[in-house]
Design a binder for these strands. Structure first.
Length: 306
RNA sequence: GGCGGUAUAGCCAAGUGGUAAGGCAGUGGUCUGCAAAACCACUAUUCAGCGGUUCGAAUCCGCUUGCCGCCU
């Protein structure tokens, strides 16, 4: 197909949103957020959502689509993203995915076909089993029995993946390692271009730190205080900034310590985002040193013509 | 100036004669229905400096230097 889809990935604070806005206007694109936290309403400052003005300027999709009390997942994102892409293409425009959630990017690109809905009771049961002394090791042993291939790839300590693999097996009777071979997704179906925008490491970290300070200046504390008063879903509760500020609110440490922790954890996050995108050979790296949106958009535009 | 204490990686820190724990930070990596999550690996030829004792010293002794106390 000739329809084109562009992905603009990259670590937090790399300058994606600003560049995307300019690029989108130039190529007639609509922006599709690819961010596991911006889907939640009420988490504005903490996720550095695009401003209302920017959102008025251009359609932004998959932002504010559910309350922070609800769980979301990579699979739901996959479904929502596919639907959104069809809508946008139907309008004769170009989907421009923008975001840093590597798994979500991959899932849209390659599809995700483990096809075993998480089943609450079953999963909880596995986790409960894992709590006993030899529990986790026993679960891993079971995985080795029913799906040696998956077991070989999963570290015994990686309880989450051990449990998910067992979950898929008991639910479907087939090993997850087999199911995961059934990939599809948007990559083969459209003309897809994937970019990873980032300044050099040192500058990226400086930008992360600066952004956290901006978040505080914009009222992060108040927003988080409000969020913490809600029964946040587990997934939403993982947003960087929540636990760090909670510790401060509970008097465990000073505000400056919370700020330090948020910066540090955000740097860790940025680092692991880079690791994710590095492994995908389809991504084209675009240096955003200096973080000048027009310049970045220009580079991306030229690259995407090739 | 005197007396006492202390000095181990970027930071915190264990180790009191037998060949440098651990944590944090940093770096690299895994990842496909919680992913801003979870998990893994690597990272001090060297213990402030110099000299001495000893088969052997981060560990004992001396001097020097830095820091921290107390006293004058």
């Amino acid at each position: 197909m000739n329809d084109k889809i562009i992905f603009l990935a990259g670590p937090t604070a790399a300058g994606k949103s600003a560049a995307a806005l300019i690029l989108a206007e130039r190529v007639g694109a609509e922006i599709v957020s690819c961010d596991s936290m911006q889907v939640y309403r009420g988490m504005d400052i903490i996720t550095s959502k695009p401003s209302p003005e920017d959102r008025r300027r251009l359609p932004h999709h998959l932002i504010d689509i559910l309350p922070a009390t609800e769980d979301y997942s990579a699979f739901r994102y996959y479904e929502d993203a596919v639907k959104t892409v069809e809508d946008i293409l139907g309008r004769g425009r170009t989907p421009l995915f923008v975001g840093g959630t590597g798994l979500y990017v991959s899932v849209v690109l390659d599809g995700l076909f483990a096809c075993a809905p998480e089943e609450r009771g079953l999963r909880e049961g596995f986790y409960k089993e894992a709590e006993s002394a030899q529990g986790a090791a026993a679960l891993y042993e079971r995985l080795r029995q029913c799906d040696p291939q998956a077991a070989a790839r999963i570290h015994p300590n990686d309880l989450r993946r051990v449990v998910r693999a067992l979950e898929v097996y008991t639910l479907t009777g087939r090993p997850i390692s087999e199911k995961q071979k059934e990939r599809s997704g948007l990559y083969g179906r459209y003309q897809v271009e994937v970019f990873c925008l980032t300044p050099p490491r040192e500058e990226l970290y400086r930008r992360v730190n600066a952004r956290v300070d901006e978040m505080f200046a914009a009222g992060l504390q108040q927003e988080v205080r409000g969020l913490l008063s809600l029964p946040l879903s587990r997934a939403a509760g993982y947003a960087i900034g929540l636990q760090e500020l909670k510790g401060y609110f509970e008097g465990k440490y000073a505000l400056e310590e919370a700020r330090r922790l948020i910066k540090m954890n955000t740097r860790h996050y940025a680092k692991s985002q880079l690791t994710w995108f590095r492994k995908d050979k389809r991504v084209r790296w675009v240096d955003n040193a200096g973080a000048r949106p027009e310049e970045a958009a220009e580079k991306l535009w030229k690259e995407s013509l090739l």
